Computed example of a mutant assay.
Amino acid sequence: MRSNHQIIQEHYAASDRKDVAAMMADVAEDVRWTEAAGFPCAGTHIGPAQVIDKVFKVLGSEWEGYQFKLEALFDAGEVQVGIGTYSGRYRQTGKAMQARVAHVWRLEGGKVRAFEQFTDTLLVAQAMR
């Protein structure tokens, strides 16, 4: 059985490849996926379908070259913390952004049960104006 750390490493590797199916492979059917207040996809989304529709598809359509660059992944057993940087160009304004971000993952039984994003939403909002 893969460790929780390996599961999240594989999620980020799939994200780099833009492989949504692989990104969601270890996500529980009732996952609680929370994007920070003030972020374009703010709120808590329940289940993989909502995460794909209300987060990944929105970011992919509204931002050009949107990406997350992982810099460190910390292993705390059932909790994993990814630290990195978001970047991209907002299509409507043509403005680019870079924002530091932390992702907090909670896993149980080899499945992602919860995800929470912490980021500088002001930097994102400035690109959208």
Score class of each variant (00 low, 15 high):
92 Q>W: 01
41 C>S: 15
48 P>R: 14
45 H>N: 09
27 V>G: 01
85 T>K: 11
24 M>Y: 11
62 E>T: 12
65 G>E: 09
67 Q>K: 15
81 V>Y: 02
103 H>M: 06
36 A>C: 08
101 V>Y: 10
30 D>M: 06
56 F>V: 12
95 K>Q: 07
94 G>Q: 05
71 E>M: 07
31 V>E: 03
36 A>Q: 13
70 L>H: 07
100 R>L: 06
98 Q>D: 10
81 V>T: 10
105 W>R: 10
31 V>A: 02
69 K>W: 00
51 V>N: 09
79 V>N: 06
77 G>Y: 13
92 Q>G: 00
74 F>R: 10
46 I>S: 03
31 V>F: 02
79 V>G: 02
90 Y>K: 09
80 Q>W: 01
39 F>N: 13
61 S>F: 08
65 G>W: 05
100 R>W: 00
30 D>T: 14
76 A>N: 13
40 P>V: 08
22 A>C: 04
62 E>Q: 13
59 L>E: 15
97 M>D: 01
106 R>W: 07
50 Q>M: 13
79 V>R: 12
89 R>F: 00
24 M>V: 09
99 A>M: 04
93 T>Q: 04
48 P>T: 15
87 S>R: 14
90 Y>S: 02
103 H>P: 09
81 V>K: 01
40 P>K: 05
59 L>C: 11
37 A>K: 12
64 E>T: 11
107 L>N: 10
82 G>A: 14
31 V>S: 02
97 M>S: 07
54 K>D: 14
58 V>K: 13
51 V>D: 06
33 W>G: 01
69 K>T: 15
74 F>H: 14
68 F>K: 01
107 L>I: 13
79 V>S: 07
46 I>A: 05
103 H>R: 05
56 F>A: 01
47 G>T: 14
73 L>P: 01
75 D>Y: 14
65 G>L: 06
25 A>M: 04
95 K>F: 01
52 I>E: 15
99 A>L: 03
75 D>Q: 13
22 A>K: 12
106 R>D: 03
